[in-house]
Nucleic acid binder design. Structure first.
Length: 226
DNA sequence: CGAATTTGACCAGCGC
DNA sequence: GCGCTGGTCAAATTCG
């Protein structure tokens, strides 16, 4: 069964390195099985399966906070309310995200071609590369008893970390598909442990491991921000 | 026994 | 420059 059955709705944050203008928030209508057109396209770009998208997040503020660096998190918390976040797109409070986008744009193609390197050099390069390249990210919050939502892809856990000011550890997963560099982070909200924050980073280069039918797509739209 | 997960160590980036 | 923090690695451990 779907692990998203208890999910609420339906807001989140994404950033797109190729289309910085699409950094922003989306919001779904709670009664729709799938969000409106604009969101659908973006979700598709991120390969977020409709099954998950329909169950996506319930708190815009917290969706943003979950992926913001600590300092900005504090700024956001102290200066903004949820409603204001809807128009946050180019405000100073989300410079962190714009910074990421800019970094992505300026550091394209900085890795690859390890073939002729020795082991240690390769390792070093890997280590250096691991922070240089920022993939587009998409995060949302879902109410769920289980941490890992069934999104149709196969993930391997590669790390777990206790993050500051939270009692729940953050888990790090990588897509198991060869050559697919998509990662996701999963953590529970400190203020409400029933809520799971999932952040996807990167785009899948393949289809989900179990077939999700191609989408269904209602074409009406409403309640769509960015 | 191979695959997946756990966990401590390491490293880079950021803020002070 | 230094300490703190988040992200990743990889050896050890657990699971199926």
């Amino acid at each position: 069964m779907s692990t998203t059955s208890q999910a609420m709705l339906n807001q989140g944050l994404f950033e797109d390195q190729e289309m910085p203008s699409q950094l922003g928030f989306y919001s779904f209508h709670p009664n729709l099985s799938f969000p409106q057109v604009g969101c659908q396209q973006s979700l598709k770009a991120f390969n977020i399966p409709p099954s998950l998208a329909a169950d996506a997040p319930s708190s815009l503020t917290e969706a943003l906070l979950s992926s913001a660096p600590t300092k900005q998190r504090e700024d956001i918390t102290s200066h903004l309310g949820g409603a204001q976040l809807l128009s946050l797109q180019r405000s100073t409070a989300n410079l962190w995200a714009w910074g990421d986008v800019n970094e992505c744009l300026s550091s394209k193609r900085s890795i690859g071609g390890d073939d002729h390197l020795g082991v240690s050099a390769m390792k070093m390069k890997k280590i250096k590369a691991r922070r240089k390249v920022r993939e587009p990210r998409f995060c949302f919050k879902t109410m769920s008893e289980v941490d890992v939502l069934d999104d149709g892809y196969k993930w391997r856990k590669y790390g777990q970390k206790v993050v500051k000011n939270t009692q729940h550890p953050r888990s790090y997963y990588r897509c198991t598909q060869d050559n697919c560099r998509v990662k996701k982070r999963v953590e529970r909200l400190a203020e409400d442990p029933r809520m799971v924050i999932t952040t996807y980073e990167g785009r899948h280069i393949h289809s989900p491991s179990h077939d999700l039918e191609e989408s269904q797509a209602p074409s009406h739209l409403n309640n769509f921000f960015w």
